[in-house]
Design a protein around this nucleic acid. Sequence first.
RNA 1: GGCCCGAUGGCAGAGUGGUUAUGUAGGGGACUGCAAAUCCUCGUACAGCGGUUCGAUUCCGCUUCGGGCCUCCA
Length: 460
Amino acid sequence: MKIKIFDTLSHSKLNFEPLNSKKIRMYVCGPTVYDFAHIGNGRPIIVFDVLFRLLRSVYGINNVSYVRNITDIDDKIIVAANKLDIDTETLTKKTISNFHEDIESLNVLKPTHEPKATESIAEMILLIEDLIKKDIAYIAENHVLFDTKKFKDYGKLSKRSQEDMIAGSRIEIAPYKKNPFDFVLWKPSKKEEPYWDSPWGRGRPGWHIECSAMTKKFLGESFDIHAGGADLIFPHHENEIAQSESSHQKQFSKYWMHNGYLNIEGEKMSKSLGNILTIRDLLKKYNGEILRFAMLSTHYRKPINFSKDLLSSSYKQLHKIYSSLNSRSLENKVTHDIPNSLLDDMNTPLAIAEIHELVKKLNDSSISDNEWIECKSKIKRYGDLMGLFMRSNFQELEVEENKLNNVQIKEIENLIKERNLARQSGNFELADEIRGKLEIKGVILEDKGDNTTWKIKNEG
RNA sequence: GGCCCGAUGGCAGAGUGGUUAUGUAGGGGACUGCAAAUCCUCGUACAGCGGUUCGAUUCCGCUUCGGGCCUCCA
């Protein structure tokens, strides 16, 4: 079984050939922790979680190292902490804990390592010193800068030349830069700002250097896959390549993967439009599994429109799939096959279509129990690889999503019992009355033979 | 201005040089005490114009439209 992935660097779909098949190494750029994560931040978290699951399945659960960093020192963090009148560490600690709570609801596996930038400052300083020693970085006005003219491959990831970029550039170039695209490796901290001592005075690291330092620390100088949002291609990932390959004189990441953008109701998410949707807010209205399903219903490289329609369609599809998985009281078998759709650059929308074909079979009362078990097992396998269908039934999801307490659940169950007694004795008036009573409370009943299940009325 | 990506049925969304997924919404039917669910069925989607080809939604070119990046946003 071979995984195919689309590699940004070669701009083509390639067979994934690990550097060492007993030790797969992937790195994903994680969040900058200054506020609640929004659903756009959630996209790489979810789609590369699927990649992690696939790699573990193909190469062995213990043979994959997944590093997802946390940027906990940065201008935005300082600004946000000042606004709240707290120190940056208090802010980042709280934000990280919120982040973990949020993504747990999305059923995201824990990465092997989740390093914080502030815990690798020493490694960053060593790397910068090395770049200065190699005459690739220079010091100017208390800043250390990377000299982009010294790295001949600069622009290879984003496919652009410095000349192209300068042509249409609207940027004001900092006076201490030798070249417009030189970027900061280390900068002085203003008073009141967090700082670390360095050979260049009290300061703090530039943004890009942390990933170069942490990939080296946790994965080595060369590793297999580096991934993140498409907006990171330039300048972040371009600059990481420049730093690491200049310092190590060898290939940095073998493959590069980038997820597409996320829109909200057809519009770009932005502060000015006021349509920033945090994962936290969405979770108040939608179960994490619905969010996850919605996220995987578009191919990861395409733009996704996160809309009410998408979420309501996702809800209905999940309901349908869960119901079919419980259409007979039989357990699935454990299988190890990996569907081609998922191996092919994580074609999750195609995988979902295949699941629906299997659902149709499960709902076919004419198939044998053995065939039924086969189908259920296949669907559960898709679920394991995509992080879906982990619950035993749809009611569990409804209970979570609507935060129903035990008293409420008991009430629903008792009314169902009462109604079924009425139905058995032919008292359909009472049965319908109970149905109506529950419907007013927003509970829809579904009779399946002698089994009655329920779901919450979807307001759209 | 430079570079890049995209355009598929009401909506969402795969895929393919010729049999035209899948979901959702809608029509019809079966089933059902009722309802829901489920199943069956229907509507002839591939932006436009050229080219290559026996044949193009799929390959090539152009046009139009949309999106992105070129400022430390996933």
